[in-house]
Simulated scan of single mutants.
Amino acid sequence: MLPCLLLAGVGWWFWPSQPAPVPLHLVAGTVHAALLTPDEASRLTGMTLTSGPRSGEPAPALAADPSRCRVAVGPTTQAVFGKDWTAFLSATYQDAGGLGDYTVTQAVGVYSDSEKASAVLRTLTAGIGSCPSAVRTDQDGRTSPWTYRVDDTTVNGVAWTAVQDGGNGWACYRRAQLKGTSLVQVGICEAGDGRPTVQTLTERIAAGVGE
């Protein structure tokens, strides 16, 4: 399925192999952030999910046309989270069939103070808002056209939808939320409406993030 091969987040197969598994819990000083396990995510989404790539740092920014859309095409990359974090953790899960028909991406960036975390959210919100459409180039050189729509903004968060042009309904529903010195981000990619589930997952993860 073409849409499954062109996810709007950091792709399932584009992540570098890890020399050792990155744990689902990160600790930076007194800050503790926990991502959902595959079993927890399965219960909340109603899908049977299996564990995929994890990373202890954001992936490099992806190429975009126009170039101002680097944030929109790579919301979990360095284009958003930068390099000034004190701790970072991300994990991607997919449907048990291994086809990528349904994927869940979680990411948490921890910063030295709340203003730096807020600046990351502002970068994300502005980047999405300034990019109604773009051609995304993945790390292996494959390109795909996407359109972007901001669904909701608050002082502490933003929700948006990325739709693959000509993807037969394939879309990625994403939400980011500030919690103290941390920025939580969750995305669900599917050929359906993942907005309610993304909100549930984001709130669940944010509730477990330290101030």
Rank of each mutant, 00 (worst) to 15 (best):
G157S: 14
V104A: 08
V71L: 06
S130G: 15
E40D: 13
S42V: 14
Q164C: 05
A28H: 03
I205L: 13
R142W: 00
V71C: 01
Q177W: 07
T76S: 11
A117K: 03
A63V: 10
S112L: 03
L26Q: 13
D95H: 05
V163E: 08
G187P: 03
D140H: 07
Q199R: 12
G98R: 10
R174E: 00
W160R: 07
A134S: 15
G29K: 12
R43Y: 04
T105P: 08
A171G: 04
G82A: 07
Q177C: 06
A61Q: 04
S182V: 11
N168T: 04
P38T: 08
G129K: 12
L2Y: 11
I205N: 01
G129T: 10
P3N: 02
Y93N: 04
Q78D: 14
Y148T: 11
R175G: 01
R195L: 02
K116W: 01
T181N: 13
V120M: 05
A159K: 01
S130L: 14
L124F: 08
V110Q: 02
T37L: 03
F14L: 06
M47Y: 12
T125L: 11
T181G: 00
T154P: 09
R43F: 02
T30G: 04
G29N: 12
D193R: 13
W12I: 06
V73Y: 00
T202P: 11
S17E: 12
P132S: 06
C172R: 11
A162W: 03
A34Q: 14
C131L: 08
G194R: 06
C131E: 04
A126K: 09
S51F: 08
A41L: 15
T200V: 14
T37P: 05
P23D: 14
V120S: 01
L36C: 03
L201G: 09
G29P: 13
L89N: 15
L178N: 09
P19M: 09
T92D: 07
L49E: 04
S133N: 06
A176Q: 05
P3I: 05
P75W: 02
G180R: 05
T92Y: 02
T202R: 01
V71S: 03
V108P: 09
G208F: 00
N156F: 11
E211W: 01
D138G: 11
A117H: 09
C189F: 05
Q177K: 07
Q139I: 02
S130M: 14
Q139S: 02
I188H: 05
E203A: 14
T76Q: 05
V150R: 12
V31M: 11
T143M: 07
S51G: 14
L201M: 03
L178W: 03
S112W: 01
G157I: 05
Q106S: 07
C69F: 00
A41P: 09
L178P: 07
D101T: 14
G187E: 14
